[in-house]
Amino acid sequence: MRADPARVHELTRRFGDFTAVDRVTFAVRHGEIFGFLGPNGAGKTTTIKMLTGLLRPTQGEGWVDGLDIGRQPDLIRRRIGYMSQRFSLYPDLRVDENIALFAGLYGIAGARFDDRRSWVLAMAGLLGRERSLTGELPLGFKQRLALGCAVLHEPPILFLDEPTSGVDPVARRAFWDLIDSLASAGTTVLVTTHYMEEAEYCHRLALMNRGRLIALDTPAALKTRLEHPIFEVRTDRPPVAVEALRGAAGVVDAALFGRAVHVVVEDETTARSRIPEVLAARACAFHGMRRVPPALEDVFVWLVRREGGAVEG
């Protein structure tokens, strides 16, 4: 039986008094896209860094491809690809020089090198631009090239730490198509994000907040966890409305959602009459409300609140 691509048990990392990752336990399955979702500071990046051997765990244990993350980081590094949060190819090297460097570091030579090099150039859309300085490429190309360099050695497990931060939605979509095709070809992908719509592309999601793993399931199953109806309320002063609604009777929770307010209620019928009243009492204009299906963000906010915590970030 093959070992799980990644498995951690009670994994903990502290920086001084601050606990970045707090007793996290999960197992990743072969070929899945496993997402970590949470605000900045939730512990997603720290978890990934421990799995890739860039950080040592303070407590707990973990295995990547059956190898112990505390004791065999050097062996793990041969079996994984990693793309960090910051763009981290060499900007002063040309495209083909960066590819040659990582090929050298991963020990790829000869015919396989030629093969992989062409593959990366095609995948990143950089055929014919081999001699461009990497630092001068548009960000979307840089990120695809970084992904290409990270999977140059065709690793069975790929770690991506907020791979699409800073690029436009179209480039983000294109990037996720690449991730999808890698996963279909059998690569297990662990990816962190704070974009809710990206989280929808993941097969399973680990929701993290303040170092804790608060839920782990498929995006669809996570949405069913929120049993209460949700209303989207439009008003002229959303922050005031949120504050007013949070204490109101029959309201489970209220949170900002874009320009509107999402209100989780006990009961649909009473909510329809109560919500306009509460807003009127605080002199907020009521521009209408409608029942909406729960989004991941609603689930996330609700789960965090149920745990008694606040959402950071």
């Binding site: 793309m83 981290s88 190819l89 990270a150």
Partner: peptide, 12 residues
């Protein structure tokens, strides 16, 4: 530059 992180994740 942050390139150390990428370098460190390789088997070097």
């Amino acid at each position: 530059r942050g390139t150390m992180e990428q370098l460190a994740s390789t088997p070097v």
